[in-house]
């Protein structure tokens, strides 16, 4: 804690920094700016350029000419509005599920785990040791029609005999939730862990019951973690296509799947580029709205 606090002070004094300090700041910024400039800003412009191109008319796939055809965007929206809806529905559902599962878990690790804390944290991160695709493929085996999970659920008549769990929206949302859970738990944990326990005690001293303390003290203080966790989950989840490709079917495809198919299969780069742009724009708007709403005075 003490190590972090002075840094926060230094940032606040930035406007009054001397020329030399400014230079240090700039040197520190260079690697990040270069990286983002080359791999983010430049491709962003090429992508924007591609998104308004039209086929060259040669009939050869992959040949396009720049015609500043902005109607590409309109075509993409009207053609793929269902996919956009599905992408955001799935990612919002998965984010909510991650929060519901992740918050109690992070709370437990931060306040109740005692000496098991580090072990539990390692366990949260452990799935990262295997590849993302492999873990998703494993879900297909786990949830397969004749696998033990589905068979036992059928045996106790929780689900109908002819139901398949994979190749369904349920499997896609479950897959996203599972894959992104650590991105929710870690920021929540780091936020909860920093809360001064005496503040919680004080809540009890002021006759707040457990729930009231959680609602009035713990949760508000953990808001940075909640915001970070939900964003880290929601943003990649809405662009995800691996889960939909492996666990879904032709009625559960998300925008990412269309981008992949347009880019590689159909070789329709303008549509893929326009789709990516619209996805970015919607994510940006949703995130800004969310952060504004979630942001409270106590947070800043």
């Amino acid at each position: 804690m003490a190590a972090i606090a002075p840094r926060a002070d230094a940032t606040e004094e930035l406007p009054r920094a001397t020329g030399r300090q400014l230079r240090t700041v700039l040197i520190l910024l260079v690697p990040g700016l270069l990286w983002l400039g080359i791999f983010f800003v430049v491709p962003l412009f090429t992508l924007a350029g591609t998104s308004t191109q039209t086929p060259s008319g040669s009939g050869i796939p992959g040949e396009f000419v720049q015609t500043f055809h902005l109607a590409n965007y309109w075509d993409v929206i009207s053609e793929y509005k269902g996919h956009f809806g599905r992408s955001f529905l799935y990612s919002i559902l998965a984010t909510a599920l991650c929060l519901a599962i992740g918050y109690p878990l992070a709370y437990l690790i931060a306040f109740r785990a005692g000496r098991a804390r580090n072990l539990l944290l390692v366990l949260v991160v452990a799935p990262f040791f295997t590849s993302f695709v492999l873990r998703t493929l494993a879900w297909r085996q786990i949830l397969s029609d004749d696998g033990w999970v589905v068979s036992s659920l059928k045996w106790v008549h929780v689900i109908p005999q002819d139901m398949a769990v994979t190749a369904s929206p349920l499997a896609v949302v479950a897959g996203i939730t599972y894959n992104f859970l650590p991105f929710m738990v870690l920021p929540l944990y780091s936020s909860l862990e920093r809360i001064d326990p005496r503040l919680i005690e004080a809540g009890g001293d002021l006759y707040g019951n457990g729930f009231a303390v959680l609602r009035k003290v713990t949760f508000p203080l953990s808001m940075p973690g909640v915001v970070a966790g939900t964003l880290l989950t929601f943003i990649p989840a809405s662009g995800d296509y691996v889960n939909a490709a492996l666990l879904g079917n032709n009625r559960t495809t998300m925008v990412g799947n269309v981008v992949e198919s347009r880019f590689f299969r159909v070789v329709d780069y303008p549509t893929a580029a326009a789709l990516s742009f619209i996805l970015m724009a919607i994510i940006l708007v949703l995130v800004v709205l969310y952060v504004r709403r979630a942001g409270t005075e106590e947070l800043v």
Binding site: F39, P43, V65
Partner: peptide, 15 residues
């Protein structure tokens, strides 16, 4: 990340 997936689009066009 979204862009990285489409990073080659710039060179992929032209007629």
């Amino acid at each position: 990340a979204a862009l990285a997936a489409c990073g080659t689009s710039g060179t992929a066009t032209g007629g």
